[in-house]
Amino acid sequence: MKRTHLPLNGLRVLDAAARHLSFTRAADELAVTPAAVGQQIRALEETLGVVLFRRTTKGLELTPEGEAGLAALRHGFLQFEEAVRAMQAGQSSKSLTIAAPRDLMHKWLMPRLAEIARNDGELRFVLVPADDDLDFTEANLDLAVRWGEGPGEHEGEALESDGMITVERPGGGVDTRISWPGCLNDPEVSLVRVGDAGLAIDAAAEGLGRATVPELLVRADLAAGRVVAIGEPRPYRFGYWLVAPLPQWRQKKVRALVDALTA
């Protein structure tokens, strides 16, 4: 069934004017001018086809038509307020759904989320693999991590990194290039090809060759001695970005997580 278009601004003005029986006091409450209140009431009367107020020697009074709908109107505004509170309750929720590439999730994100959760036992995370076409609404996402030159169409903040770095097994492996989708190596001349940068790091750690991977992704493996760096990191135009559409990005729980992940 098609819903009737509701003149919500006019109805809000009607409620205030009816409570005060004064356009001036209603205007003070609504932070507008008395003239604006009068215009809204006249527009509402035209829309509804009834007279809502009349002026008498005693001042402003409601007509029977105006009086007839007030109880239902005020109940409706209470319902609106309840609906808004229910929607805003998610702001205080401690559950966040995050999408990220699988290799970043395993190598970097999960250890950090575990550390963050140790400081707040109420936090709950739902982790889903990210694809190239992030649909925040369909997946009910709060935050995502993408690999690229910027946040794209969303709001975003870059994860700090030194770019790309080449690694191999400690003690040296074979002089073979390990390639992965998006790597700097030419996959046509690579003898070892894997599905992502995380697998490239693991392949290098096993001695299958040398992998050039995001420095951010391999930090933990370098620190643990699983692989060693060959040369210094090189700047690269691509990087990892925390991203979300503006409504999600403004949520307090999302901002707190972004701050923790980028600290």
Rank of each mutant, 00 (worst) to 15 (best):
A86E: 13
A71H: 07
L109H: 01
V84T: 11
T56L: 14
R118H: 05
G69A: 04
N119A: 15
D103P: 04
A117P: 00
A68L: 06
A89P: 01
E67N: 00
E115K: 14
L113M: 04
R112P: 02
L78A: 14
A86N: 07
F77I: 14
F125Y: 14
L104C: 00
G49N: 06
R55K: 14
V126T: 15
N119V: 05
V126K: 08
L60Y: 04
H106T: 15
D120V: 05
F77N: 11
T63N: 07
R55H: 13
L52F: 03
P101V: 03
R54V: 11
A117G: 03
L109M: 01
Q88C: 13
A83T: 12
T56D: 12
E67M: 02
E82Q: 15
A71D: 08
Q79H: 11
E122G: 06
L52W: 04
A100C: 13
D103S: 15
P64W: 10
R74I: 05
L127C: 04
G90K: 03
R124A: 13
L52N: 01
S93Y: 03
R85K: 10
R112E: 13
S92C: 13
L113K: 03
A130N: 05
E61R: 13
E65D: 10
T97A: 06
A83Q: 13
R102T: 10
P111K: 13
L52M: 02
E82Y: 14
L113F: 02
E61P: 02
G90W: 06
P101R: 01
R124H: 12
A71V: 09
D120T: 03
A130H: 05
A117L: 10
A130C: 04
L48F: 08
E115Y: 14
A117W: 00
E61A: 06
R85M: 08
E81Q: 06
R102E: 14
E67P: 00
M87C: 04
A89V: 01
V126W: 05
N119G: 15
T56W: 12
L113C: 05
L62Q: 02
R85D: 09
A71W: 03
D120H: 06
M105V: 04
E81T: 00
G121Q: 11
P111E: 07
